[in-house]
């Protein structure tokens, strides 16, 4: 329930920042796909069920607030998730660096799939320039992904939403058990 509450707030916040705040701060060509970056970071940091549901919700939000053919963003995001989860253990083991790489590669893959789906459906006239744009979006994901991956690792840890494996990793290596004072007394 706590995860649902925080992720709902995050979803709304991402939509507002992506559609209202960033366009006023950055030129239209430089705006990263913030929603997808956050969702793919969440996929690595959160328990699998919550992560997958959050990526689905972000894809749906992009479809609802976008102008392209409906469902294409959600479908692209879910295919990307399927591909990324095939090496889920490696992403999780790498921690923030894994989230960064997953977000970057996932952004490129999702955008590429979106263009391909648009071509298959004949819905948008994406040409060579669209594939060049995929490259740019991936580059922005690489740039913006690093601070986001770090920030969201801290955010999810603060919220207590991290995967158990990542919680263990953040605690560091297990210390050797301390000797009990009673044992020392008994030996003496």
């Amino acid at each position: 329930m706590r995860a649902f509450f925080w992720l709902s707030l995050l979803l709304i916040g991402v939509a507002v920042v992506q559609d209202a705040l960033l366009p006023s701060l950055l030129p239209a060509e430089w705006i990263p796909d913030l929603g997808l970056l956050v969702a793919l970071c969440a996929l690595v940091y959160l328990p699998r069920e919550a992560g997958v549901a959050f990526v689905f919700a972000v894809g749906l939000q992009a479809d609802l607030l976008g102008a392209g053919p409906f469902g294409h963003w959600t479908l692209s995001c879910m295919i990307t998730v399927t591909v990324l989860l095939s090496i889920e253990r490696e992403w999780v083991a790498a921690g923030a660096a894994g989230a960064w790489m997953a977000a970057t590669l996932g952004t490129g893959l999702a955008h590429g799939l979106y263009v391909l789906l648009g071509r298959l459906w004949g819905a948008n006239a994406a040409g060579q320039a669209a594939f060049a744009q995929v490259g740019w979006v991936t580059l922005y994901a690489l740039v913006f992904g690093a601070p986001l991956a770090w920030a969201f690792a801290e955010f999810f840890a603060w919220m207590g939403l991290l995967r158990p494996a990542l919680i263990e990793k953040r605690r560091g290596p297990a210390r050797p058990p301390r000797r009990r004072a009673t044992a020392r007394v008994a030996r003496s």
Binding site: V52, G59, D63, L75
Partner: peptide, 14 residues
């Protein structure tokens, strides 16, 4: 779960 969401996403396009 991923396959369920994938099917849902495909249904959205319809």
């Amino acid at each position: 779960d991923v396959w369920v969401y994938l099917a849902l996403a495909a249904l959205l396009t319809l």
